[in-house]
Amino acid sequence: MIAALLASVCLLTCLGQISQKLAVESWRGRQLSLPAKLFSPWLVLAIACLGGSLLLWLVLLQHLDVGVAYPMLSLNFVLVTLAAGVLFHERIDLRHWCGVALIVAGVALLGLQS
């Protein structure tokens, strides 16, 4: 259950971040009013995902110490990096991948602790 909660928090947070990027990309080169921006579908999805991840995070914290749970959210760096490369065709250099590998190693070490 804890692993599923953590995975859900990470996935919803990642989807929220990607939705934010898609929201601002949809605004590029367009003159939109503030209400039009605030109620754009991508921004509404981002808020819903981030709100959902917050609620699941609160449930997760009932079962896991914050000192263990919070670093696990670093997996978002991995997910967002992969999504940035695939969805936005962003260039991800070797140094970035080395940092991602260190994050994964750190999360694995913490996972052994719990």
Results as ranks from 00 to 15, higher is better:
M1A: 14
A4M: 13
A4E: 10
L6E: 08
S8W: 05
C10Q: 07
L11K: 00
L12Q: 01
L12F: 11
T13P: 10
T13F: 03
L15I: 02
L15R: 03
Q17M: 06
Q17P: 08
I18M: 08
S19D: 06
S19G: 04
S19N: 03
Q20Y: 15
Q20C: 14
A23W: 04
A23Y: 04
V24C: 09
E25D: 15
S26Q: 12
S26G: 13
S26C: 13
G29T: 06
G29S: 03
G29V: 05
R30E: 13
L32K: 09
S33W: 08
S33L: 08
L34H: 10
L38D: 06
F39T: 01
F39I: 03
P41M: 05
P41F: 07
W42P: 01
L43T: 04
A46C: 12
I47W: 06
I47C: 08
C49F: 11
C49V: 07
C49E: 02
L50Y: 05
L50F: 08
L50V: 09
G51L: 03
G52C: 09
S53G: 10
L55K: 06
L56W: 04
L56N: 00
L56H: 04
L56F: 02
L58N: 11
V59K: 01
V59S: 06
L60Q: 02
L61P: 06
Q62Y: 02
Q62T: 08
Q62W: 04
Q62D: 11
L64C: 13
D65R: 13
V66Q: 07
G67Q: 10
A69L: 10
P71S: 04
P71M: 03
M72C: 14
L73C: 12
S74E: 11
S74N: 13
N76R: 08
N76V: 14
F77Y: 15
F77H: 12
L79A: 05
L79E: 00
V80Y: 09
V80E: 02
T81W: 01
T81H: 07
A83R: 00
A84E: 09
A84Y: 05
G85D: 04
G85A: 05
G85S: 08
F88D: 06
F88T: 07
E90M: 13
E90R: 06
R91M: 13
R91Q: 14
R91G: 14
I92G: 13
D93F: 04
D93H: 03
L94N: 10
R95Y: 12
H96E: 10
W97H: 03
W97P: 07
V100L: 00
V100D: 01
V100T: 04
V100I: 08
V100R: 05
A101H: 01
A101D: 04
L102A: 07
L102I: 08
A105T: 10
G106H: 00
G106T: 01
G111V: 12
L112E: 13
L112T: 15
